[in-house]
Simulated assay, not measured.
Amino acid sequence: MIYTCRMREPTFHILTALADQPRYGYDIIQEVSTLSNGRVSLQAGTLYAALDRLTDEGLIHADREEVVRGRLRRYYQLSDTGGAALRTEIARMRADAEAAEARLRRPGTARPQVAS
């Protein structure tokens, strides 16, 4: 599946969290919070539903499992398809930001006040 429309913010952050290395659930939650400067806070139920959906869509896959303190820990990894979808979303976001900046540079465009 190739994303052709805007990716939801939690999906974007989950894929980004998995871009550099495999991670397990709690680690993904922590990494998403760090990546978003605390703006995105995933609950465990939401995360695992998203992981199931992203696995079904072929954007991620289970990398390995290990038992830690008697509990199963499953690591997820970004797939090649997931990497392509993430790159596409980054390009879309960059183009949108550039279009917005171009509009703000037009003569007569009101400049927003920067809070100090």
Rank of each mutant, 00 (worst) to 15 (best):
S116L: 02
R64E: 10
D63F: 13
D56S: 12
G45R: 10
N37T: 00
F12T: 01
L35S: 03
A115I: 02
A19Q: 08
T109C: 04
Y76V: 00
G83A: 08
S79I: 03
R6N: 00
T34E: 14
T88P: 05
L78M: 03
R73W: 11
D96A: 10
M7P: 03
L54M: 15
Q43Y: 05
V67L: 14
R94T: 06
P112L: 04
Y76W: 14
A99S: 06
L54H: 09
T11N: 12
A85P: 04
S79H: 04
L15M: 01
E66W: 10
C5T: 13
I90C: 02
T46R: 15
M1Y: 10
G70P: 11
M93N: 07
D96C: 02
R71D: 02
R23A: 14
I29S: 02
T11L: 08
D27V: 01
E101R: 08
M1P: 05
A62Q: 14
T34S: 13
R103W: 05
P10H: 01
F12K: 06
I14N: 06
L18R: 01
Y75C: 00
Q21L: 06
A110Y: 01
A91I: 05
M1W: 06
M1A: 10
S41W: 00
A95L: 03
A50Y: 14
E31A: 09
A102D: 13
E65R: 15
A19V: 06
G82E: 08
T46L: 09
E65Y: 04
R111A: 05
H61D: 12
D80G: 15
D96F: 01
Q21F: 00
G58V: 09
Y76S: 09
L51I: 10
R94L: 06
G45C: 08
T11R: 08
L47Y: 14
S41M: 14
N37C: 12
A19S: 14
P112S: 06
E9K: 09
R106I: 01
E89Q: 11
L72E: 11
L15H: 05
T88R: 13
E65L: 00
G108T: 02
Y48V: 12
R103C: 06
Q30S: 15
V67A: 07
H13M: 09
R103V: 03
A91M: 01
S116Q: 06
E31L: 05
I2V: 12
L78G: 07
Y3T: 01
R94G: 07
V67R: 10
V40K: 03
Q30V: 11
L35G: 07
L51P: 14
R94S: 03
A97E: 07
G58A: 09
E9Y: 01
A85T: 09
D80V: 14
T11W: 11
R6H: 02
S79E: 05
L51H: 08
Y48G: 01
R8E: 11
L42R: 08
T4L: 13
T4R: 12
A110E: 04
G83T: 07
Y26W: 01
A44S: 11
V68E: 14
L104I: 05
P107W: 02
A102Q: 11
I60L: 10
T16V: 02
P107A: 05
E65K: 13
D80A: 15
Y76D: 02
H61Y: 13
L59I: 00
M93A: 08
R64C: 11
E98V: 06
V40M: 07
R87L: 11
L18V: 08
L78P: 07
Q43N: 12
E9T: 10
N37K: 15
R8F: 04
